[in-house]
Design a protein around this nucleic acid. Structure first.
Length: 944
RNA sequence: GCUGAAGUGGUGGAAUUGGUAGACACGUUGGACUUAAAAUCCAAUGGCCAUUAUGGCCGUGCGGGUUCAAGUCCCGCCUUCAGUACCA
């Protein structure tokens, strides 16, 4: 019988679906294990062979854990809100839900054909109102909370209100906006309701703020910091400018320290933790207040080097700093304004690209040094960033290279405060190897003591204190898009009100156009029915309220929020929702969360380090503070799978001519490489010229210069992408070799965490392994399994395979166990093994990797039901224990010959046996050895 | 610049605590079976020198060191990839 993989795979996929083989129950006598993949965004292009790598790895692990007797939760779903479906809607007018639905169908078909053991009964989609009901719900919970720094956790906002009533806010230690005014209890109680709401908004964990945001004109929306790469948008690469807008924000900065500390408690890859640490960007130092001469205003700065305060010879403000206008003297005004304007015009990208040019302007104003009371000139300069710290620095040119360069450029004095250090060429930034000088009370102190002393003295003056600063900024949570979660928010007199939980979900309205309105409002501004009736608690026609810009209402009908939530909203709690996905009363039941607790293994790409993976940790900590989840980290272990790269092919066109040269003929001629679709290339890198011409009609008359009668292309490894024409479709691979071959090959390609190029040619190796495996069970006459007793060799092969495969899976080195299988099958074939006692457990070992063939042979051996529930074979050491071993005998570290010796001999006996051996004597030629080193079971080395 | 990871045949990659480097696979070459091809099977395959041989020498980015023994440990470099970038 032949190995008909297509039939076998279709048959078992159907069987699993029909029997719900992988459905997980929320209770079990078995221990639980939760294996999670990062759910995909269902794009129109479908899957390529690079996408399922992580899913295959997690599937192997999930199947392995089932064999090991665990109750495994292995769900899958779709992150189905997103830009591409919306862009398509803008172009075609088709509703994004239709596009999304179609794409999901394709994804599901492609995932199913790979034989994953997902529990599809728990599928979630972020764009499903039944799902985003709970995204909206979490948003409301965040709105109803503030962060208490004393308790170091999120607390109900009502408790804050009670505190305000009782004692005002002077002694409240909570995360809040910078511009909160101090008020007493009496003042609070006298405030109008609006005023109270405005104040509370400055404390809530999600809040509205007029903030400088990253506006992307081409996409018509704002972007979060992590959605900008090299100053352009991550999606599409469009320019991004700074703009002030009123936006929903997430007060993630309140959680900065816990997000940092939490990294120590989770088993995530070190590089990824490092990225998050950098992103959070903790620095310890001091805030210092400088008075401004002849002004009431003061400048607050943050510095990590308060010990160098006597070296401060000027101050620098970011050009965008609020004080610039106030303090600039009349005779400097024109120049300062020109400079500010010039800086504002430069895009983020220009500013980043050009960090060497030093520019700045003197404001004419002077600050006063807190200790010496000397005047310090105040400059503005674009090397100071508005977005970090306070947007102002005390410049210490002798201790900071940027300050040094600025001072040199503008001829500002550079006082030296380091004992015995030469600063004539560059600043001295090494804080550990110096003693402070010329610094009054800091003289003679080392870095650490000087910092402490400086802060102490600043505190005495009331002009500073120790401070920890974080780079992590609050996250913008509004997007000016259609295809996202609507905010459950309406506005009364311009102040946001939450829709009551029991009226969720607030579903997306229908709109005619998916573009912004003519007045520049987000796409939801096009909806005719987008107002909230507070009497009926229903969405009603806009006509019943005033226009969206009006804040008054008629008859209790108010305008609804026009922004939608960003992509990461829906992905920040999905892992918990899988535990109880159909619950319509709660986000998840306490029974479900207490049973599954947290993700035991999460597999996905490291590109989400500062996005999804950070935001999810933030939401989880919030949910933990609310008492809704038992752990404040959602994933115990995380693995980043490496990308599978494509191998692009290039045809070379002679510059300016319609003529292509085969790769070997280029020499030093000027050629332009043009991507050729990899499907036109055979395994010898030869191009199918006719197919190429048909595909690119502009070259249909081109001349192709051949070498050895063929046109050879050049190859290069790049990211697998449609635009590079190097995409390999898993559908084709499955059809030609089967899903089991694809699964094995993706694992065989190399270590899971490493990036590696795809090369379809290599798949024949694993495919022929599967055929050999099949032949172990079947020959031309049918099944050839017997009940004979296994031989010693049979048992040895089986048990060393069990040991290796078990170790490999536990260590996630799936690539080496594929080799182990190949060796085992070759050995068993050579041993002519037909014993059921060997071949049956072998199938369980193979089953996580190649589940279809394992099921088929398992059934052929007469087993009922799925192999998925069979126990993993138990490794027994006794079958591997040998009585003798070929010892390598080396002389002076150089291998000479091997000698078979019993393994249970003592060191002394081995030494005596080796020395008595005639080959040894031959080597020694009568000389006495200086030393004999014996490592039992390993090696014998004779030093002469 | 800073941080992190990694350098092993033509290629992807194996090598417990230092203990016979190159497992396994691709590719290549030769052979068998075929009218032929595909498929399958067998053999060879790190380099150099030998071939009367079960032979010799060199080999894990480079230069040193420790050790009877180093891909693995130590010191100093080089290169590549990834992340990050005026963070005060």
């Amino acid at each position: 019988m032949k190995y008909h993989f297509n039939d076998i795979e279709a048959k078992w996929q159907e069987y699993w679906a029909e029997h719900q083989t992988f459905k997980a129950e929320n209770k079990s006598d078995k221990p639980k294990f939760y294996v999670l993949d990062m759910f995909p965004y269902p794009s129109g292009a479908g899957l390529h062979v690079g996408h399922p790598l992580g899913y295959i790895a997690s599937d192997i692990y999930a199947r392995y854990k089932r064999h090991k007797g665990f109750n495994v939760l292995h769900p899958q779903g779709y992150d189905s809100f997103g830009l591409p479906a919306e862009q398509y809607a803008i172009q075609t007018g088709q509703h994004p839900s239709i596009t999304t639905e179609a794409n999901i169908k394709t994804y599901r078909r492609q995932l199913d054909q790979l034989g994953f053991s997902f529990d599809w009964s728990r599928e979630v989609r972020t764009s499903d109102p039944k799902y985003y009901k709970w995204t909206q719900w979490v948003f409301i919970q965040l709105f109803e909370s503030y962060y208490c720094n004393d308790a170091d956790k999120a607390m109900p906002i009502n408790e804050l209100v009670d505190a305000f009533k009782a004692e005002g806010n002077a002694r409240i230690n909570a995360a809040c906006d910078d511009d909160v005014e101090i008020f007493s209890a009496n003042e609070w109680n006298a405030f109008s309701s609006e005023k109270k709401q405005e104040i509370l908004l400055k404390y809530r964990l999600t809040y509205l703020a007029e903030a400088e945001v990253n506006w992307c004109p081409a996409l018509g929306t704002v972007l979060a910091n992590d959605e900008i790469v090299n100053g352009v948008s991550e999606r599409g690469g469009h320019p991004v400018i700074r703009k002030k807008m009123t936006q929903w924000m997430m007060r993630i900065s309140a959680f900065a320290e816990r997000l940092l500390q939490g990294l120590e408690t989770i088993d995530w890859p070190e590089p990824l933790k490092e990225i998050q640490r950098n992103w959070i960007g903790k620095s310890v130092g001091a805030s210092v207040t400088f008075k401004i001469k002849e002004h009431d205003a003061v400048i607050d700065v943050f510095t990590t080097r308060p010990d160098t305060i006597f070296g401060a010879s000027f101050m620098t403000l970011a050009p965008e700093h609020d004080l610039v206008n106030q303090i600039t003297t009349p005779d400097q005004k024109a120049e300062v304004e020109a400079y500010v304007e010039a800086t504002a015009k430069r895009s983020e990208r220009d500013r980043m690209a050009d960090v060497k040019t030093i520019s700045g302007m003197f404001t004419g104003a002077y600050a006063e040094h807190p200790f010496t009371k000397e005047p310090i000139p105040i400059w503005i300069g674009d090397y100071v960033l508005a977005g970090y710290g306070t947007g102002a620095v005390m410049s210490v040119p002798c201790g900071d290279q940027r300050d040094y360069d600025f001072a040199k450029h503008f001829n500002i004095p550079i006082p030296n405060i380091f004992e015995g250090i030469d600063i004539s060429e560059e600043a001295f930034a090494d804080k550990d190897n110096t003693i402070i000088a010329n610094s009054d009370f800091l003289n003679g102190l080392k870095y650490k003591e000087a910092v402490r002393k400086a802060i102490e003295e600043l505190e005495k003056l009331g002009q500073g204190q120790g401070k920890i600063n974080y780079r992590l900024r609050d996250a913008v949570f509004s997007r000016q898009r259609y295809w996202g979660e609507p905010f459950p928010v309406y506005y009364v007199n311009g102040l946001p009100q939450m829709i009551d939980e029991k009226h969720l979900p607030l579903t997306l309205p229908e709109v005619e156009k998916y573009l912004p309105t003519e007045t520049g409002e987000p796409p939801l501004g096009n909806a005719t029915h987008w107002a909230w009736d507070t009497k009926t608690n229903k969405v009603v026609s806009n006509e019943l309220s005033h226009s969206a810009s009006d804040t008054e209402s008629i008859n209790g009908v108010y305008p609804l929020e026009l922004n939608t939530m960003p992509g990461w909203a829906g992905s920040s709690q999905y892992f918990n929702r899988y535990m109880d996905p159909h619950n319509s009363d709660e986000i998840f039941s306490q029974d479900a969360i207490n049973y599954w607790q947290q993700v035991d293994l999460y597999i996905g790409g490291s590109e989400h380090a500062t996005g999804h993976l950070l935001y999810s940790r933030f939401w989880q900590k919030f949910m933990f503070d609310k008492g809704l989840v038992p752990y404040d980290e959602f994933a115990k272990k995380l693995i980043n799978q490496g990308m599978i790269l494509g191998t692009s092919a290039f045809a070379y066109r002679l510059e300016g001519e319609n003529k292509f040269l085969s790769k070997g003929l280029i020499g030093d001629k000027e050629v332009q490489p043009i991507h050729a679709d990899v499907s036109f290339i055979n395994s010898s890198d030869e191009l199918d010229i006719e197919a190429f011409k048909k595909w690119r009609p502009e070259f249909k008359d081109a001349e192709f210069v051949l070498e050895d009668d063929v046109y050879k292309v050049g190859r290069d490894v790049e990211k697998m992408s449609k635009s590079k024409y190097n995409v390999v479709n898993p559908d084709q691979i499955c059809e030609q070799y089967g899903a089991d071959s694809l699964r094995l090959y993706e694992m065989f390609l190399g270590p899971l965490e490493q990036a590696k190029p795809w090369n379809t040619a290599g798949i024949t190796g694993v495919h022929s392994f599967l055929k050999k495996l099949w032949k172990l069970y079947y020959d031309d006459n049918g099944l050839k399994i017997s009940d004979t007793e296994p031989t010693k060799e049979n048992l040895k092969t089986l048990h060393k395979t069990i040991k290796k495969v078990e170790e490999d899976i536990e260590n996630f080195s799936f690539n080496t166990s594929v080799s182990t299988f190949m060796i085992a099958v070759n050995e068993l074939t050579a041993q002519k093994c037909t014993t059921k006692q060997i071949l049956e457990p072998l199938l369980v070992l193979v089953s996580p990797y190649a589940p279809h063939i394992a099921e088929e042979l398992w059934a052929a051996l007469g087993n009922q039901g799925s192999i998925a529930t069979a126990p993993f074979p138990v490794f027994e050491e006794t079958y591997l224990v040998e009585s003798s071993k070929n010892y390598p005998i080396s002389f002076n570290g150089k291998m000479r010959f091997t000698l078979e010796l019993p393994l249970d001999m003592s060191k002394e006996d081995i030494e005596a046996a080796v020395l008595a051996n005639e080959k040894t004597q031959e080597q020694l030629q009568g000389r006495e050895p200086k030393k004999v080193i014996v490592v039992p079971g390993k090696i014998v080395n004779i030093v002469g």
